[in-house]
Design a protein around this nucleic acid. Structure first.
Length: 418
DNA sequence: TCATCTAGCACCTTTGAAATGT
DNA sequence: AACATTTCAAAGGTGCTAGATG
C-alpha cells in the first residue's frame, strides 16, 4: 500500500503493450471476514475514471479530448478461484499474473485498455462453489483510490519511471549505474518527448550522493506492496446493517422476489465503495471538485464502511501531500446505475456454446456481460461463456489454447460504477 | 511536425526440471 | 527409495530506443 501511495502521489502510470504488460505495483489485497468453509471467487475488472483522454504536457497530465469508445470489458478471475474463505484469508491475495494490453484483438485474455486513459481496478469477491454456479451468487466489490492509474504505451512522467526502476526487481538492470551502456551510447539520439528528454539527463543530473543513497536502498529492495498489502474485509457479520436490501435487487432481476428478499436478508451485500460513492454524491462532497472528491470518497469508503485499520483517515482538507500535483480531473462519470447483489453471469458448459441460461442485465437484453478472463491454470480447462454474444466465434475461440478466452461484450461484467 | 505506438534490444528475475546429496 | 537441496537453462518481465504511424 505504501508503494501504491508513492505512485499515486506522483500520478501512477501503467504501461500497456500489445503483448500485455503486468501491473506494477501489482494488486495485492488481504481479505478478512469471509466464511472459512464457503467458497469464493476473486475477480478484477477495470473501470474508466471518466470520459476523457489525457495527454502529458509540460510535466502534467491534461485532458486531450473525449475518451475512446469503451472497449469490450474483460474480467480477470484469480487462478485460485474458487477457493474456501480460509484460503483467501490465509495470506494476501496477489493478482500478479494480471496483464494489461492495448490490443483490442488480444487473444491471450489480457485486460484491454485504451492508452492515455484513466482507470481503476475493482475487486470482486463472489461467494460461489465454482465458476459455473457463480451466476446468481452473492458478491461484494472493493476499490482503492490509490490504484487509479493512467494507461500509457511509454512512460511520460520521469518520476514514475524512476520509482518503477527503483522498486521493480525486473528493472534492476536499469538501476545500477554504468551497466546500461546502451542508454549512454545512444544518448545523442534523442527525441522530443518531454519525459524522454528528461530521462536522458538523469545519469548526468543526479547528484552522486543521491545516487549512492538510491543504491543503498536498492540493495534492500523488497517490493513493498507485498509486505504491506491493502486490506479489505467483506465484513460478513455487519453486512446486514450496512445495506438496504431494496438496492440490492432491482425489480428486473430474474431472481424471484421471494428469493431476492431471502438473499437480501441473508447477505444484504453492501458494496462499501458504491454505497459511499452514492452517499457523497448526494451529500457533503458535492462541492469537492474533481479527483480529490472521488479520492476522498473512496478513502471514506474504506475507512468508514469497511472499518479498515490500515487506512489512515483523510479529511477533505488534509489530502496527502502530492495530491495537488495530480492532474486536474473533469467531473466524474454519471451517477452509477443500480445493480443487483448477485452476479449476473451465465455459463455454458466447458467448450460449448450450447444451452443458454436466462440472464438479467441492467442494460437490457442487447447488452451482454463482460468477458471473463480465466488465467491459465492446471486446474481449469478452457472455458467459454457464450450465452450472450453473437460475436463469439470472431472474438474468442472456445477451447482456445490459452484457455482464457471467454465472451466479448461492450460492457463490464459488473456494469455499475463503483 | 508532433504525439503516440511498436518492435527489438540488453539486462535482469523467476521458474521448473534435472542433477546431486542426504 | 524417498526426500531435500543445488544447479542451470529457458521463459518471461523490465525500461530504453529508433523508427513507424496517423
Amino acid at each position: 500500500m505504501g508503494l501504491w501511495m508513492k505512485f499515486h502521489q506522483i500520478g501512477t502510470e501503467m504501461i500497456i503493450t500489445k503483448s500485455g504488460r503486468r501491473m506494477f505495483p501489482q494488486c495485492k489485497i488481504k481479505v478478512s471476514g469471509l466464511i472459512p468453509y464457503a467458497k469464493y471467487l476473486m475477480l478484477v475488472d477495470f473501470v474508466p475514471m471518466d470520459n476523457f483522454r489525457y495527454k502529458w504536457n509540460k510535466d502534467q497530465w491534461e485532458v486531450a479530448g473525449k475518451a475512446e469508445p469503451q472497449l469490450p470489458c474483460r474480467t480477470y478471475v484469480h487462478p485460485d478461484s474458487p477457493a474456501p474463505g480460509s484460503h483467501w484469508m490465509k495470506e494476501p491475495v496477489s493478482f500478479q499474473k494480471l496483464k494489461l494490453t492495448n490490443n483490442t484483438l488480444d487473444q491471450h485474455g489480457h485486460i484491454i485498455l485504451h492508452s492515455m486513459h484513466r482507470y481503476k481496478p475493482r475487486f470482486h469477491i463472489v461467494q460461489a462453489d465454482d465458476l459455473f454456479s457463480v451466476r446468481w451468487s452473492i458478491f461484494q466489490v472493493f476499490s482503492f483510490p490509490e490504484t487509479v492509474f493512467t494507461s500509457v504505451t511509454a512512460y511520460q512522467n520521469e518520476q514514475i519511471t524512476k520509482l518503477k526502476i527503483d522498486n521493480n526487481p525486473f528493472a534492476k538492470g536499469f538501476r545500477e549505474h554504468g551497466k546500461n551502456t546502451r542508454r549512454e551510447g545512444r544518448a545523442k539520439c534523442q527525441k522530443s518527448s518531454p519525459a524522454k528528454s528528461q530521462k536522458r539527463k538523469l545519469p548526468e543530473e543526479k547528484e552522486p550522493a543521491a545516487e549512492e543513497r538510491d543504491f543503498e536502498k536498492d540493495e534492500n529492495v523488497d517490493v513493498k506492496e507485498e509486505s504491506n498489502p491493502v486490506v479489505v474485509s467483506s465484513g460478513y457479520p455487519f453486512w446486514g446493517s450496512e445495506q438496504n436490501s431494496s438496492q440490492a435487487f432491482p425489480a428486473a432481476s430474474p431472481v424471484p422476489a421471494d428469493q431476492r428478499e431471502a438473499l437480501a436478508r441473508e447477505q444484504q451485500v453492501p458494496t462499501p465503495s458504491y454505497h459511499t460513492y452514492r452517499f457523497h454524491e448526494a451529500g457533503d462532497s458535492q462541492q469537492l471538485p474533481s479527483r480529490d472528491a472521488t479520492t476522498l470518497n473512496d478513502f471514506r469508503a474504506r475507512c468508514h464502511a469497511l472499518d479498515l485499520a490500515m487506512v489512515p483517515e483523510h479529511d477533505s482538507k488534509q489530502l496527502p501531500e502530492g495530491f495537488t500535483n495530480l492532474p486536474p480531473l473533469p467531473p466524474p462519470l454519471p451517477p452509477p446505475q443500480d445493480y443487483t447483489g448477485v452476479v449476473n453471469m451465465a455459463l455454458d458448459s466447458v467448450g460449448k456454446a450450447g444451452a443458454r441460461a436466462p440472464m438479467y442485465s441492467p442494460y437490457g437484453t442487447e447488452q451482454g456481460l463482460g468477458q471473463w478472463v480465466v488465467p491459465s491454470h492446471s486446474q481449469y480447462r478452457a472455458m467459454s461463456y457464450s450465452a450472450f454474444s453473437t460475436e463469439y466465434n470472431t472474438q474468442g475461440t472456445p477451447g482456445h489454447a490459452h484457455g482464457t478466452m471467454a465472451e466479448w461484450s461492450q460492457y463490464p461484467l459488473f456494469p455499475y460504477a463503483c
